[in-house]
Design a protein around this nucleic acid. Sequence first.
DNA 1: TTGTACGCGTTATCAT
DNA 2: ATGATAACGCGTACAA
Lengths: 344, 344
Amino acid sequence: MSDAPAPTLADVARHAGVSVATASRVLSGSRQVSSEREKRVQEASRALRYRHNAVASALRSQRTETVGFVLPRYSTAFLSALIESASAGLEREGVSLVLRYSAPDARHDRDNIESLLARRVDGIILCPPSEEASRESIALAGSTPVVQVGRFVDPDATDSVGLDESRATALLVAHLATTRATSIVAVGLDPIIPADARRLDALRLAGEHSGIRVRIADPVRATLQGGIDAAELLLAVWTDGAGSAPSTRDWDTLVCANDDVAAGAIAVLRMRGVRVPEDVQVASLLDVSLAEDDVAITTLRHPWSAMGREAVRLLMDARASDRDGVTRRVSLAPQLIVGASTRA
Amino acid sequence: MSDAPAPTLADVARHAGVSVATASRVLSGSRQVSSEREKRVQEASRALRYRHNAVASALRSQRTETVGFVLPRYSTAFLSALIESASAGLEREGVSLVLRYSAPDARHDRDNIESLLARRVDGIILCPPSEEASRESIALAGSTPVVQVGRFVDPDATDSVGLDESRATALLVAHLATTRATSIVAVGLDPIIPADARRLDALRLAGEHSGIRVRIADPVRATLQGGIDAAELLLAVWTDGAGSAPSTRDWDTLVCANDDVAAGAIAVLRMRGVRVPEDVQVASLLDVSLAEDDVAITTLRHPWSAMGREAVRLLMDARASDRDGVTRRVSLAPQLIVGASTRA
DNA sequence: TTGTACGCGTTATCAT
DNA sequence: ATGATAACGCGTACAA
């Protein structure tokens, strides 16, 4: 099928017997036009199968109605949720999303930004992959608005949306205090890893605050199997021999790195005759399922969707009004989801 | 900071004392230019901090170097892998990715395509969310190349990349036959669900072919807990009372819907004293971890990255040469990953 | 309210 | 190899 050249605004105007200006005004809705001509233009547009040309429009108006989104290559459900909500927010504004993945090396990161700027995006959402914020990227962007979003943002450089994990941890521990927890063991967290170390600190701090003892189990992988291993290890200490029931323990609560670890631990506990949550409570610091209906495990759900929405809001706002030099920082706390693995 | 207007090609040309045509040729590398002038242009470009304007370029060349990617709103690791590999492939060609999520209702789907076409994308990658292919979307695209990718493609409409699940299932069963499996129980698959029904059919067919008996366990959720529940149920049938070891079974192999289910089942089996894989082998039909290094469970890994790569290849190829009316269908089989849950 | 005409920044054509 | 210039399709200031 040989393509007829795509109809232009001029074609529509001619067909409707009006000027291109009038046609433009009707189709973009920028100004009032007499209803008589309005109808003629609409009809001509449909008859010719006219399609707005965003490229020409962008060149003329100096606005692409497009934003860039740079994110790390981790294929996690978190990032999916983040992109998805950002995409939804942008779509509502008629703005398109150009996606770019950042690599470990900075060189590639800069190319990413350059590419987006060459495309004249109206703004950039940046999800830094690590603590070393992408200061260079931000500098490159110049006057193009940038919003950082995620765990590892550099609050001073640009508008940003971050997580308040310690506040959430405190929330969780407060809940456990309410349900008569007295001694917590942290499972699946490794003090060597900076992010884990911060979580452990927050846990300890909250524990002190509530008079709950906090100890750390030997590090295991933050997976289902890790949870199984850790629970077996913990129980073995309190079991005299194979097959017999576990004896008394000096801990009554497990706080796991994530839901997978918690699920593994719960499975082991129950199979060994330890009742959850009656004998031992289990909670998780990170909801990885993102499933709305699953309340089996008490967990902290990170508000990725809300973060995406906030990022878009900040960006659209920055695009509209020039707030010079003042950077805004939005901080969201994970949500405590009380499930069946802790007591009422 | 008040923005100086961005420098244009004309500025660069003036600064270098050459014509805009020459400047363009140097910076786009489209034609040979004397090394003398070439150097002057490059220097001027750097001095002025010139940045290529992709919008103007697209308007003139009628090519945006941009493709649209429409995918369903499921936040799964699969889709992440798919986008990621597609993005990587496109980036290598200097092409940007515009992301759009499709909604259940067709109206929204059409708006998505319209928006992409208005942006004059050079092509569209479509990941249909269900069996009812997006025929309308494809029709709308007209002469803009479309490639479908994913589980639910309509092979006749456009170039497409799909999965060959039954071939993979056959592969898995063949492996199990080699490892002396004689009787399989399918876990976590529900005959009511069409996709599961197809998998069960493939399983039965492959079983017949290898002389292996295939039965279906009572449906459980396709989660870790589901795997635990199913295994408990299966073992209960063969156990005379609480605490004692399981007696002889008339099955020796579990084929689970996915890795989560398998992990749950394995945990139960081992805790009940059933050795895996010595006494019972466990395999999974779907690798959900996407972790390269985890070989604990024998599983089928769906080649999402390869699918993304293939989709890009098809699209770039279609953009280059006009293969009229002939649609190509690429079918990829999941990969058999032999893990520690089956015998050698 | 409507029309005319120019410019957005680049690439392609056609001369030289 | 190089330069002048005409498009690409749209928005909008200005004139009517």
